[in-house]
């Protein structure tokens, strides 16, 4: 298992020497996951809030649907998105195949149910007295929403991090929709898959460590928020 120790050394060499292929893959990963997370959070937090806070006809069915979508395999999402963005697909004219935007669409489908479901759970577990307290302290509707979201920030943060973890580590969507094109859509995970298939286990391991370091950076900056 000497490739593990080689991989650790290689990971540092790649990062410190500014290896352009590695940084290209890192940039692709960060860009595409940021795009998909931005959209997922922008839609998923309000949707989760509505799902957890309000009652409406069909809510149970929506909840079951969202919970089921948590189990979508990434390769399946990849195929689904491919069917739409392929030249012969309904969205073929947009030219999204083999682009980061195309991957981001798939990753949004992956992350959105996670953000929505976990936010809904966090909001559901919110103390019932919070609403009473805020209104009776004079909060208007907008303030009520803002403060309530702020009160469940730890739950929302956890939802975001869970989704981010899934998005950053998925390989099925990136491979299928992105095509693992060098300098373009090669993310850290598709690079790992490639290096592994080439038998470059140490290199694959090193890239895995790079991915973990990105995740660590994100989590450390988030824990800075969580401390409050």
């Amino acid at each position: 298992m000497d490739f593990i120790s080689q991989g650790i050394l290689e990971a540092f060499r790649l990062l410190l020497s500014g290896d352009s292929q590695t940084y290209s893959a890192v940039a692709a990963t960060v860009k595409v996951s940021s795009m998909s997370m931005a959209v997922s959070l922008a839609i998923g937090i309000p949707a989760g809030f509505v799902l957890g806070y309000t009652d409406f006809p069909g809510k149970k069915q929506v909840r079951v649907t969202v919970d089921t979508m948590l189990a979508l395999p990434t390769v399946f999402i990849g195929l689904l998105v491919y069917a739409f963005v392929s030249s012969r697909g309904p969205l073929g004219d947009l030219g999204l195949l083999f682009t980061l935007k195309g991957i981001a669409i798939g990753q949004t489908i992956l992350a959105l149910p996670i953000v929505t479901a976990l936010c809904a759970s966090a909001v559901e577990q919110m103390d019932r007295q919070l609403r009473v307290t805020l209104i009776s302290l004079g909060a208007d509707r907008l303030r009520l929403l803002k403060t309530s979201l702020w009160e469940v920030r730890h739950g929302i943060l956890a939802a975001g991090l869970t989704a981010y973890g899934r998005v950053m580590t998925e390989v099925g969507i990136s491979m299928m929709v992105g095509g693992n094109i060098k300098w373009q859509t090669r993310t850290v995970t598709t690079a790992i898959a490639l290096e592994t298939s080439k038998g470059q286990f140490a290199m694959g391991f090193a890239l895995g460590l790079v991915l973990i370091m990105i995740a660590l950076t994100v989590n450390v900056s988030v824990s800075f928020l969580r401390r409050k």
């Binding site: 960060v30 940021s34 931005a38 980061l100 300098w183 373009q184 928020l225």
Partner: peptide, 20 residues
């Protein structure tokens, strides 16, 4: 703190990719 977090996130979004 909130401001810093938002700026950091925005910066990540704008990170340039190494494209040829």
């Amino acid at each position: 703190r909130t401001g810093v977090a938002i700026i950091a996130f925005a910066a990540m979004l704008c990170l340039p990719g190494a494209t040829v």
